[in-house]
Amino acid sequence: MIELKSVAYSYGGDAILEGVSLSLAPGSFHFLTGPSGAGKSTVLRLCYMELVPTSGNLSVFGKRAGDMTRDEIARARRRMGVVHQDCQFVDHLSVADNVALPLEVAGHDAGAQAGDLADLLAWVGLGARAQARPPELSGGERQRAALARAVIMSPEIVLADEPTGNVDWEMSLRLLKLLVELNRMGTSVLIATHDLALVRAAKAQVAARVLRIADRGVQLAGADL
């Protein structure tokens, strides 16, 4: 589905990642851990092709990312659900409109899918906040709205960057449960987090592979997790 082979990424002459190899198969559940600044977000941004590898090979849905046109990249992103670290909303649109954005940009009639949208908002516990504006939401509500937007197109993979970064433990478990439910429905999941307690909680629910970023490379984490 998404495969990185010996990928390196540098920014301003500084190497951020070197020799990273990673394969995200259909239906898999991965955690990517490591301290802040280790390059977790960079790996995710490479996966959804916001960044271009300095060297190595990145293929997404069976096609080399470097060979994709801009329109092909946009179409590939519609097959992914991305939960960005700071959520990223269009602040003057309502929560419902933000969640429905992927439908709109893909040319679907969001109005015709209003029922599904309401169900999805209820699923993430935002049924009563559908008409609120993103700046009016709490941290946890924003994370849930971002998750709802990430899954509305029934993506093949969800890429979540610190999805529990701004929420309390109870909310973290709730969001994790949503991601595990998605995975059980066949969606691949890659979560970048530095929260090892969350990783441990997930391993009790799902067969997750835990990867760690160290020394600019990605390794399989040890049994301590």
Partner: peptide, 16 residues
Amino acid sequence: ARVIATLRLVGARDAW
């Protein structure tokens, strides 16, 4: 730029 980044994230084409 933030709105554009959000639209890109959800798969919007440049033309859209």
